[in-house]
Amino acid sequence: MAYFKYKGIPFSPEFSSEETLSYVENDFQLLDDDIVNITYPKSGTHWMAEVLSLIQSQGDPSWVQNVPLEERAPWIELDEDLKIALKNPPPRLLTTHLPFQLFPKSFLHSKAKVVYTLRNPRDAMVSRYHFIKGFKALKDPGTVEEFMERFLRGEIDYGSWFDHVKGWVEMKERANIFFITYEELRQDLRGSVQKICHFLGKELNSQQIDSVVENASFHKMKDNKMSNRSTMPENVFDHTKATLMRKGISGDWKNLLTVAQSERFDRVYWENMCGVNMTFPWE
């Protein structure tokens, strides 16, 4: 299936339309108490949505156990999810993979809080490579080599990882944006949850934080039908070919990329990221 481009960024017509993207960019009104979970695809999106859902419910897991993730934290750029987002009562939890330049313009005049999660792009690419295989409407990713080249050129939905990260990092001086990495979440989930609570102005006691950490663990999410996307219909997703919750680890790219591919990736990475004023755990 071919992508369509909106302002130069590729999108999948199966899930988004030009009309929805234009509405979100120009007319969608962010509210001051909105919390927006932002990632480049396969960078910990569902994990962070779960953490934020549990913080929102003060550690009580009943919301995450009974309401599907896409209803709790809908993706604003997806045609169907946008309808849910517009109906959900405040305070809303929203999710998006949009690059900064396509994000709702209303953000610049709102107090809405953004949590932006980054992940080693090699891992994001490998995770995406495996995940795409499940979507019936998306074309087969081809060989690792072919997919890696498309990834490095930004010729996949949502465009370039490098542009996405650079666009958001430029906003890092804003008080209502918080940056965290997938690797930090893996290394110290409890400490990360405490930092996120502090950023959101949410006071959770020690037991509530314990509950957030426990219920946002990989194993709990993998077993939770409301979080693992196992409810996606068979005509959309072939569950025998891929799963959302695959390994939940860092460094899996080492199992897939050859030395030559890894060196090529590094070259392109540094060409793109050499001027970025932020350091990352994978560098």
Results as ranks from 00 to 15, higher is better:
H130Q: 09
T45R: 11
W282S: 06
K111R: 14
G44H: 02
R174K: 15
V276D: 06
D140R: 11
S211E: 00
D32V: 02
N255C: 07
A137F: 14
V114K: 09
N224G: 02
D79E: 12
P74T: 09
W253S: 04
Q207N: 13
K42W: 06
L244H: 02
V259E: 15
R92H: 08
F100Y: 15
A260W: 03
R122Q: 13
H198V: 04
H97Y: 12
F135W: 14
R229T: 05
V67M: 13
L82S: 04
K105L: 13
A73L: 03
S106W: 08
R267M: 10
K113F: 11
K87H: 12
F178A: 06
T39R: 04
M125I: 06
E146R: 07
K254D: 01
T181V: 05
K139N: 14
L30T: 05
N176T: 11
D163V: 01
K202F: 11
D210G: 00
G8Y: 11
K254G: 02
D210P: 01
S17T: 14
V169G: 04
E184V: 02
Q207G: 09
K5T: 10
Q56W: 11
V259Q: 14
M278L: 13
V67P: 05
T279F: 11
D79R: 09
I180F: 11
E263C: 08
Y269Q: 04
P10E: 05
F100V: 07
K222H: 08
Y182A: 02
P281M: 10
I55A: 00
K202D: 02
A49S: 15
R150E: 13
N255Y: 08
E283G: 09
F131Y: 15
S217T: 00
S57T: 12
L244C: 03
P89I: 01
M278P: 03
N120C: 05
R190C: 01
Y23A: 09
F178N: 03
A175C: 12
I132Y: 10
D34V: 08
V67I: 15
K225W: 06
R190G: 01
E155R: 13
N176A: 07
S57R: 01
M278G: 05
L257V: 03
D223Y: 00
G154K: 11
H198C: 13
K222W: 02
V165S: 06
E203F: 07
T20H: 06
W168I: 08
N26W: 06
K113I: 01
S192K: 04
L108Y: 13
V67A: 04
G191T: 03
G134K: 11
I35Y: 05
T143E: 13
I156H: 09
H239P: 06
D140H: 15
K133E: 13
K5D: 10
D140W: 09
N120F: 08
K202T: 08
L54W: 00
V24A: 08
V213P: 00
R92Y: 09
A124G: 10
W47R: 00
Y40K: 09
N37H: 08
A242E: 05
N37R: 07
K87R: 15
L98Q: 11
L21P: 02
V51G: 00
